[in-house]
Every structure is written in C-alpha cells, then in structure tokens.
Simulated assay, not measured.
Amino acid sequence: MSTGGYDPNKDPQNPGGDPYPSQGGDYPPPGGYPPPPAGGNYPPPGNYPPPPGNYPPPGGSYPPPGGYPPPPGGNYPPPPGGYGPGGSGGGFGPTQLSVGDAISFGWRKFSANPGVWIVMVVIAFLIQALINGIFNGFDFTVQENDGFTSAFSAAGLIGSVVSAIVGYLIEAAFVRGALSEVDGRKPAFGTFVQIAPAGAVILTGLLVGLGTSVGLVLCIVPGLVFAFLAWWAMPFVIDRNQDAITAIKSSYHAIRSNAGTLFLLALALVGLNILGALLCGLGLLVSIPVTIIASTYAYRITTGGPVVA
C-alpha cells in the first residue's frame, strides 16, 4: 500500500506500473545516469556529456597528436650518387691532392695487378706498329716520291688518321682500366674494351689533338697550355658520359681549380715516361700504367669523385 512518499521500486514515469526489476544488492544502474527519456530518442553512443567537475588534465607534458617537432640537427647528408664540388665526394680517399700521393697510388695499384697492364701496353704497341706497317709497307724510312715524302702520300695520310683514331680508342681503354683501379676493382682484359661511347671518344681525341696542333704552331706555348687544360677530357667522357665539347670544358674548369699542383704532377708524370723510354723502351711497360692510374686518381680527387685506396 502506498504511503504517498517516494518508492524506489516504482517507476516515476508510471506510478501505477510494475516496479523496477531487482538489480541484486539494491545498487543503482551503472554510471549514475538517469534513465533515458520516454519516446525512444536515445543519444548516439559515445556522445555523453562529461561528468560535472573541474578535473585537472593528466600529468605529463604530452604534445598534441601529430604535432611532433622534427628531430634535432637537420643537417642530413645527401643521398649517395653524384660527385661533390671537391674533396673525396663520399669516397674513401684523401680530400687533398698531392703529387706524391698520386704517384704512390699509381704504383701501388699497378704493382698489385701488373700482368694485365703490361699485356695491354704490349698489345697497344703491336697494334700501332701493325697499322704503321700496313700503310707504309713495313718500311719505316722516309722515301722520296715525286718530290714528296711518303709521309705526305695518300696512304701515309690515311695511315696517320687511322693510327690517331686507334690511338684515341687505346687511350680510352687505358682510362677505363684506371677508373676501375680507382674504384677498387682490379681490371680484367674485358674491362679495357668497354670504351663506349666510341663516337664521343674519337671526337674528343680529334678536337684535343687539333687544338693542341694549332697551339703548337702558334709559338708552341699555347699548344702546351691547351693540352694541359684538356688533359682530363677523356676521363670526363668515359667516367661521366659527357660529349666532347662538354668534356673539354669540364677538364678546363677542373684543371684550373688546382692548376699549380696539377702542373707539378704533369711534369712528374712526363718525367717518368721519359725515364721509361730511356730504359730501352722497356720502362714504358711500367711507367705508362703508373702515370695513367696516377692521373685518373688526381682527376677523381680534384673533381670530388670516389677513390678506394
């Protein structure tokens, strides 16, 4: 019987209805929220207002999501590939060029792999001698021919052109082998024949030879200067796949960047080859590989290319 007071077992929205079902232990519904209003308009899940009260934020200085600052530093090295403006450029060699280091590097690499280099020098000599013999009848003396020497005959001119072109290809083959040495790989015979692009190689050799010849006619000194500044045109063609004009320009800028040291190195390398020629020519079997490797080492150091000791 009702007493007129509040009956916790009665539904306040339906006083005459059934009491609430027993919850066991007379505990209120979990969460302490009032029952949902009649009519079925339930709020979507998860959108309940926070309980009253001024609760402090959780302890700790946590940054907002997604707003993390970049890691300290910021001076990250560039990805590998490409040569820098100078120094070792990510390689393993020294960053400064010296004449002694270049020559000792050339000797060390040659002495570790002399067989293939000596054989390649011998092959180069034999090829040039064969070309000269084919176009001159294996007669190396100057013959008079209607007032002109045989050197100015049609066969002699053709032979000179063919000999020059073959010489450029041989030079490129030696540069390819020297680049392999500087990269830390002992060249095999197959390394020397990978001289593509042959067209750029031949054109570069012709332009450098022509410029040197014209300079020699102009009081000799301009020809020597041009030959010195175009010294590394062939390595730029082989190593960086540049065309002839670009390679000559690149050589000019690279040589000029360290002209003093490179001039001393050029004198030293020429002196080594002269000494090799004085030893009955047999010394060239050693001096030519050593000087080519030393020159390629200097090219890589000066242009910031990699060098593996």
Rank of each mutant, 00 (worst) to 15 (best):
I118V: 15
I165M: 10
G46C: 02
G281W: 00
S61K: 06
L216F: 14
Y55N: 07
A309N: 11
D11S: 05
F174C: 01
N41Y: 12
F152N: 11
S98D: 11
F105A: 08
P44C: 02
G283L: 01
L278G: 05
P306K: 10
T3R: 08
G271S: 12
G137A: 09
G271Y: 07
I255H: 02
T149D: 14
I255V: 15
P70S: 07
P43Q: 09
V307W: 09
Y168T: 05
A277D: 01
I131G: 02
V99D: 02
D7Q: 08
L279I: 13
G59E: 14
V308F: 14
F192V: 03
G304R: 06
L229K: 05
G115V: 10
V99K: 01
P35V: 08
V119I: 15
S257I: 09
R300C: 07
L284F: 08
S257W: 12
W107Y: 12
I103Q: 03
A173V: 06
Y168V: 04
Y48I: 03
T212D: 04
Y62N: 05
I134A: 13
E171S: 15
V290W: 00
A254Q: 11
A227Y: 00
A155Y: 06
P72F: 10
R240A: 11
I165K: 03
G156E: 02
P51Y: 06
H253K: 15
T261V: 15
R300T: 03
T246H: 09
I131A: 07
Y299E: 00
I248H: 03
R300I: 04
F189W: 09
P70W: 08
D146M: 12
I158K: 01
F148I: 11
L207Y: 00
N273Q: 15
S213T: 15
I248S: 04
